[in-house]
Each structure stands twice: as C-alpha cells, then as structure tokens.
C-alpha cells in the first residue's frame, strides 16, 4: 500500500481524527474488502472447543474458506452476555484446561500459517488477572489484532484502551440497540478497528429473523462515523447474512458455527463441515450489495 493510500485509509477506516498511525491488519482488511466491493464475514469460534488443537485447524479452515476476520472467544466461567450455545462451548473449553495464556500461545503458532486478522472476544476478568499491560503486549506479540471485551463499556475502558493503543492492538467497542445517540457518538469515537453493532437486546444465540430496526441503527452509526460496522448477535443463516450484508460492512456469526462444532466435535468431518458452512455464509457477501 502506498503511503498516500495508507494515510487516506487510516483517516477513513480507523481513526477519524488525531495523529496518523500505521494501519492495523483489521484496518487493512476492511480497506481491501471495500476496494473489492465485498463485506466481511467475521467467524466466531470458542477457543479450546473441543480442543485448542482443533481451534487451530478450524481457524485455518475458516480463513481458507472465506472468513475475513476470525473472532476467538476466550472461555470464561460466567459468560453473562452469552446464550446457551456459547455458554456450553465455554464450559467444554474450560474443562479442557483452556486459559487466556494458552489461547495466546495458539494464536502465536497460527501466525506462521495465516494472515487472517484475529480478534479476541473476552470478558474483562481474565484480562485483569493477566494484567492489562502484559495482556496487551503478549496479545500483540502473539499476532492478535483486536480485542472485544463483552463487559467493558467505554466508561470503564480507559486503562485497557491505553495499553492496547501502546501495543498496537485494536480495542473494538460495542454499540447496542439501547445505546442513546450520545453513547453512540462516544462509542464510535472510542472504537478501533471496527464497531461491533449488537443487533438485538439479548444474549448471543441463533434467532429466526434479523431485527427490523437494524437499518435505522446502522444509519445512526453512519451519521457519526466512517469506521467499518460489523453486526453480530442472532445472525445464523446465509439468508440473514445476505440481508445484513446489504447494510453493514461485516457480519459476525457465532452461535451457529459453535453449534456446528458442538454437533461434529470428535468426528472426522468437523473441519470440513465448518469450512463448508463458512463458505456458505461468505457467499452472499462477495457480490455487489
């Protein structure tokens, strides 16, 4: 990427104001997608479910079959933003001894084989236990690109944001249907990499339909930011992805993939089944809107 384009992309995609930084891998990915007229598929996997070795294989397969960003869930004992599917996955992963340090080791080994941007989805306590500075540095060194903390609103995020910034890690913030216009502006300003738009009031999990007021939520965000907007929660089928892909820059699918992992865990066809599903989810995001 030329310097001029880099500066332009940095301005547009990642940092509406302020000094110029090197574009992160997440920023580059969204720029590339935009240039190709595509939207991002963000594929979520719970790290360590059914094992970290499987997670490694699943990340590589997801990236090969069309995931533009992989979101790795760090299992936590009390996942209060998650529905039953991801709760069960977290429990399985914890039973197998998965810890945040081991998830970071897994990412480090993955970096020899893939360039796909990796964002961690975690709760705050494992990060606190690791130590904010140590976490940000270790994660960045391991090749983690972004961090999303499910229970860390902007009001409490300054300490981690400072360490993430220093380490070159994008701290992705979430916007919810209940966020007031004032909060939407605050979050848009604070978020790095992309903005995670929570599509519904509720926990993660599959739903029959895409919420109707999503278009209005996205419009509200577009008015205050040029940062990429990825939509998650409740999106589980290719037709949902297609509908959301018409509005957003990226679509996040979690529980539906995790449920597939749950069903196929231990079978020879696990990796292929997840790969096929990822390919089916990505397909509607390739063409023009």
């Amino acid at each position: 990427m030329s310097d001029a384009r880099l500066a332009q992309a940095t301005d547009g995609a990642r940092r509406p104001r302020g000094p110029r930084y090197k574009l992160t891998r997440l920023g580059e990915t969204f720029e590339g997608l935009r240039a190709r007229g595509e939207r991002a598929l963000v594929a979520y996997l719970t790290a360590g479910d059914p094992s970290l070795a499987d997670t490694r294989r699943l990340v590589l397969e997801a990236a090969r079959r069309g995931a533009d960003v992989v979101e790795l869930g760090v299992p936590f004992s009390d996942p209060l933003a998650d529905g039953p599917v991801i709760q069960r996955a977290a429990m399985r992963a914890l039973d197998r001894g998965t810890t945040l340090p081991r998830v970071l080791e897994t990412v480090a080994t993955l970096r020899a084989e893939t360039n796909v941007p990796i964002a961690l989805l975690t709760y705050y306590n494992p990060v606190l236990a690791f130590g904010l500075k140590a976490f940000a540095r270790t994660a960045a060194d391991a090749g983690v690109d972004g961090v999303i903390v499910a229970d860390l609103p902007p009001e409490e995020a300054d300490p981690l944001a400072a360490e993430a910034e220093a380490a070159g890690l994008d701290l992705v913030a979430m916007v919810a249907p209940t966020s007031t216009p004032e909060r939407v502006r605050l979050i848009a300003r604070r978020s790095r990499g992309f903005i995670y738009l929570v599509a519904l009031t509720g926990v993660t999990g599959e739903r029959r339909e895409v919420p109707r007021d999503l278009a209005a939520q996205i419009r509200a965000l577009r008015r205050v930011t040029r940062m990429p907007v990825c939509v998650g929660f409740g999106i589980s089928r290719p037709e949902h992805v297609e509908a959301v892909g018409r509005l957003a820059d990226g679509v996040i699918v979690g529980s539906a993939i995790v449920r597939l992992v749950e069903e196929r865990a231990g079978s020879a066809g696990l990796v292929e089944a997840v790969g096929d599903f990822v390919a089916a989810l990505k397909a509607p995001l390739r063409g023009p809107r």
């Binding site: 209060l80 933003a81 705050y124 499910a150 229970d151 860390l152 609103p153 009001e155 409490e156 913030a173 979430m174 916007v175 919810a176 249907p177 209940t178 966020s179 007031t180 909060r183 979050i187 929570v198 009031t201 509720g202």
Partner: peptide
C-alpha cells in the same frame, strides 16, 4: 464498584 456490563445495559 463501577459498571462492567454489556453495552445494552448501560443506558438502562
């Protein structure tokens, strides 16, 4: 103390 909750609960 503080407020460490998902964004959905902040405005409420």
């Amino acid at each position: 103390g503080g407020r460490f909750v998902p964004e959905t609960l902040m405005a409420p």
